[in-house]
């Protein structure tokens, strides 16, 4: 799966929101989950995630709090907000619609 840059950017928000909708998490774990879900095919440049997280926080789709790692290090956790949950629903619907459109146009035989 070799996703172009703009598709990676567009899919980042719903993926992050969906992960946080399952449970609170932190940057490293979110990246690990994405890698795992895509069987290692979707690779984000790790550092790029954080500015995205901060933008989502600014838009109040997620909030953050400081906790600790198992080894006692300061760790920033993220939590989805109700606005974030609403956004996740509409984003997921959009992706589904787009996917349906493509499937209908191309036809399952050709894909």
């Amino acid at each position: 799966m070799d996703l172009p840059k703009d598709m990676v950017a567009a899919s980042a928000t719903p993926l992050i929101l969906a992960i946080l909708n399952n449970a609170d998490s932190y940057g490293y774990d979110i990246i690990a989950q994405v890698k795992g879900l895509s069987d290692g095919e979707m690779q984000w440049a790790d550092g790029m995630l954080y500015p995205i997280m901060h933008r989502l926080e600014k838009k109040e789709l997620i909030t953050s709090y400081w906790g600790q790692s198992e080894t006692g290090r300061k760790r920033k956790y993220y939590q989805i907000t109700s606005i974030g949950q609403e956004s996740l629903i509409s984003l997921t619907n959009n992706w589904r619609k787009l996917n349906d459109m493509l499937q209908n146009l191309v036809g399952e035989n050709n894909v």
């Binding site: 940057g27 490293y28 550092g47 080894t71 290090r73 920033k76």
Partner: peptide, 9 residues
Amino acid sequence: DELKDHLFS
């Protein structure tokens, strides 16, 4: 601090 946690992880 956040990036450091990431790097150490």
